[in-house]
């Protein structure tokens, strides 16, 4: 095993270009599980953990840039992220547990591209942008376009995530929700995870709904059909129950040892229903 240890972003890109077969390493909470199972034997590892410039949080007029190596526990402590992006903070606070969050990074969660990545529903409703660097230069990708399938991303050869940008919302949402459903309070893989943002007009009709589900398809899904359907409508029980039917259009849950299709669908629909009917307590 060879370990490459770049100290700057440009060094990381250069080393990765010279060693295209190398596997990037951040907090190691996904990779070390693979290592312990022996699947990384004889591989070359590009250890990014000493790249200090990728550990920072930067604020701009339009949003917040989260460095790719920032541990999830640090992200939760940032006052601006806490105030403006509470759903991401909530998601970060249930990834594994405290000992995991002190090591795990947002970029690692994204690049790992598990269908059950818990930060993805918030990232997708906040319409985050992933900034990458590679020998071909920098690239900015809407987060939903990063996910190509189970454990697959659209990152090209030699491409590394440098930061994740959260654009400020134009208006505070009237309602918001993050909820993970799993088999244990911590260290658990989600059966389903939901994030929602809702803006209402003065008359109570929907101005905009953004709702995303994790663990319900190979990649995180926005409920485009339901979002479009409720737009401009008042959230009566009839409208809501139609939206619940439409939820199925954007997901394709599977049966596995963790859960069943029926359970996943029912719980997701219950979460959407509670959110749209205003039964989810707001802080």
């Amino acid at each position: 095993m060879t370990v490459l240890g770049p100290r700057t972003g440009s060094e990381a890109v250069a080393l990765y270009e010279k060693n295209p077969q190398a596997i990037p390493l951040a907090g190691g909470t996904d990779l070390m599980v693979a290592w312990n199972r022996g699947t990384l034997n004889h591989k070359t590892i590009l250890d990014l953990s000493a790249v200090r410039e990728w550990r920072a949080i930067a604020k701009t007029e339009t949003g917040v840039l989260i460095g790719s190596l920032l541990p999830l526990s640090e992200l939760q402590k940032d006052p601006v992220i806490f105030e403006k992006f509470p759903l991401l903070v909530q998601a970060a606070s249930i990834v594994g547990a405290w000992q995991i969050q002190n090591r795990a990074t947002l970029a690692g969660n994204i690049a790992n591209a598990s269908p059950a990545g818990d930060t993805f529903p918030p990232l997708v409703v906040y319409e985050a942008v992933v900034h990458t660097v590679s020998p071909h230069g920098p690239r900015s990708i809407p987060v939903r376009e990063v996910f190509a399938g189970v454990k697959k991303t659209t990152l090209g050869p030699g491409e590394l995530i440098a930061s994740i940008e959260l654009p400020f919302l134009k208006q505070n949402p009237d309602r918001q929700l993050f909820r993970k459903v799993g088999g244990r309070a911590a260290m658990t893989i989600s059966k389903t995870a939901a994030a929602g943002l809702l803006w209402l007009k003065p008359d109570g009709a929907v101005k905009e709904l953004r709702f995303a589900l994790g663990s319900m398809a190979p990649t995180v899904r926005r409920l485009r059909a339901a979002e479009k359907f409720v737009k401009g409508k008042k959230l009566t029980p009839e409208i809501v129950s139609e939206a619940l039917e439409l939820l199925k259009k954007d997901v394709s849950p599977i049966d596995d040892w963790r859960s069943t299709i029926e359970y996943r669908l029912r719980v997701s629909q219950n979460l959407l229903e509670a959110f749209l009917l205003g039964h989810v307590p707001q802080r």
């Binding site: 390493l25 190691g28 290592w35 312990n36 250890d47 000992q99 002190n102 090591r103």
Partner: peptide, 10 residues
Amino acid sequence: ATSCLIPIGQ
């Protein structure tokens, strides 16, 4: 931090 997931190099 869980020491079973940390390579000593880090």
